[in-house]
Simulated assay, not measured.
Amino acid sequence: MTTDSIEDAVVSAARSKGYAINSTTMATVAVDLAGSKLDGELIAVPGKGSLSVQDYLRDLHDRAPSGFSRLQQPDKPDDRERTISEMRRKRPLDSGWHARHAKATGITKTMMDEIARNRA
């Protein structure tokens, strides 16, 4: 096994915990584990013994917490990141919109009614 497979295992373990690792921290992984071999879930470090990928990841996170960021879950937007449609739903409709809505007819009236329902 190469160092790349060990790095892949570390990245996969981080992702399974909900984290992404930045490139600077990945450089630390490469230096820490140079010459090591992956044996299943264990990393055999030359002259130092073996440790699990999870234990290494925990140690790395303790040493370099700024190198980890939370992964964005596609079905759970971050509280700080709102989509345009969410912002529109929360924004109140102004008086000009209500005046146009009162005069609208046909499909325009139907669509404006739907907008009003979605924002209420």
Rank of each mutant, 00 (worst) to 15 (best):
T108G: 09
R58Y: 09
F68I: 13
R15P: 09
Q73Y: 07
R15N: 14
F68Y: 11
K90G: 15
K37T: 15
L93T: 07
I84E: 02
E114F: 04
G67Y: 02
D4L: 05
L57H: 09
I43R: 09
G67A: 03
S36L: 11
I6D: 06
M111D: 10
E114W: 04
V53S: 00
P77F: 13
D39W: 09
P77D: 01
S12R: 05
E41V: 15
R100N: 03
G67M: 03
V45R: 14
V10H: 00
G18P: 13
A13V: 08
K17A: 05
H101L: 03
T105A: 00
R80D: 07
D32I: 04
R80K: 14
A13Q: 03
G40K: 00
T108M: 02
R70L: 09
D8I: 12
G18Y: 06
K48S: 06
G96D: 13
V31Y: 12
V31C: 03
G35C: 13
A20H: 02
G49K: 12
V10Y: 00
V29P: 12
D59C: 15
L60H: 00
L42F: 14
H61Y: 03
D75I: 07
G35F: 12
I6V: 10
L57A: 01
D59V: 11
Q72F: 10
R89L: 15
A102I: 04
N22F: 03
A20R: 00
R63V: 12
A27D: 06
K103R: 11
P77Y: 04
R80M: 08
S12P: 04
T24D: 05
F68G: 08
